[in-house]
Amino acid sequence: MNTAVDVRSVVVEREMPFPAEKLWRALTQPHLMEEWLMKSDFSPQVGRGFRFEAQWGALDCEVLEVEPQRSLAYTWNGMGLESVVTWTLTPTAAGTRLRMEQVGFKPEQEQAYRGAMAGWPRFFDGLEQTLARLD
C-alpha cells in the first residue's frame, strides 16, 4: 500500500536576474519552452490538456493552476510516472526566485526520480540561457 510518505519530490530553486514577467513568458510560450524544455502545444489555461514531446517520447499533461507571473502547475505524466510540476515565482531585489517542484515519484520509480534530479538543473541552465537572449 502506498502512502503519501512513500512519494518523493524533486525541488530546484534558483534566483535569476530577470523580472517575473520575463520568466513567465519563458514558462508559458511554446516557442520559448521548446528552447529550454521540450516541444509542446502548451497554453496557460486551467483544464487544458497539452503534450510535451522529446526524442525519448511524449508526456500527456494538463494545466492545473495559472496565476500569471506568480505560479503555474501542470500534470507531468508519461512512462508510468504520474506527477505534478509546480512553478513559483517570487520577486527579489535582484530579479526573481524561481522554484520548481515535481511531486509524485513512487519508491519503484527510482530511475525517473534520478532522471528528474539530474535533468531539472540542466533545464534551469537552458532556461537562463533562453532568458538572457530575450528582449
Rank of each mutant, 00 (worst) to 15 (best):
M1I: 15
M1S: 13
N2C: 06
T3E: 06
V5Y: 08
V5F: 04
R8I: 04
S9M: 07
S9W: 02
S9E: 07
V11S: 09
V11M: 07
E13P: 05
E13G: 14
M16K: 06
M16T: 03
P17C: 09
F18E: 04
F18R: 03
P19E: 11
A20F: 05
A20E: 06
E21F: 02
E21L: 10
E21C: 04
L23H: 06
L23F: 07
W24F: 10
W24I: 08
A26R: 02
T28R: 08
Q29H: 08
H31T: 08
H31I: 05
E34Q: 06
E34L: 00
L37T: 01
L37C: 10
K39C: 01
S40C: 12
D41I: 06
D41T: 07
P44V: 08
G47S: 13
G47M: 15
R48N: 07
R48G: 13
G49P: 12
F50V: 02
F50Y: 06
F50G: 01
R51P: 02
R51K: 13
E53M: 13
E53Q: 15
Q55E: 11
Q55R: 12
W56M: 06
G57Y: 11
G57N: 10
A58H: 10
L59P: 00
L59E: 09
L59S: 15
E62I: 11
E65H: 15
V66F: 00
P68I: 08
Q69A: 13
S71H: 05
S71T: 06
L72H: 09
Y74E: 02
W76Y: 11
M79D: 13
M79T: 00
V84Q: 15
V85S: 09
T86I: 05
W87Y: 15
T88N: 08
L89W: 03
T90K: 13
T90C: 07
T90I: 08
P91M: 11
T92C: 06
A93K: 11
A93H: 12
G95L: 06
G95S: 06
T96H: 04
T96V: 07
R97T: 09
R97W: 09
R97M: 15
L98E: 06
L98H: 04
L98C: 12
M100L: 15
M100R: 05
M100W: 08
E101R: 15
Q102K: 14
Q102C: 12
V103K: 14
G104N: 13
F105N: 09
F105I: 11
K106R: 15
P107G: 08
P107Y: 12
Q109L: 11
Q109I: 07
E110R: 15
Y113G: 08
R114Y: 00
R114Q: 08
R114K: 12
A116L: 14
A116T: 13
A118W: 07
A118E: 10
G119N: 06
W120Y: 05
P121V: 04
P121K: 09
R122F: 03
F123D: 04
D125C: 09
G126I: 03
L127W: 03
E128Q: 14
E128A: 15
Q129V: 02
T130E: 02
T130F: 01
A132T: 14
L134A: 07
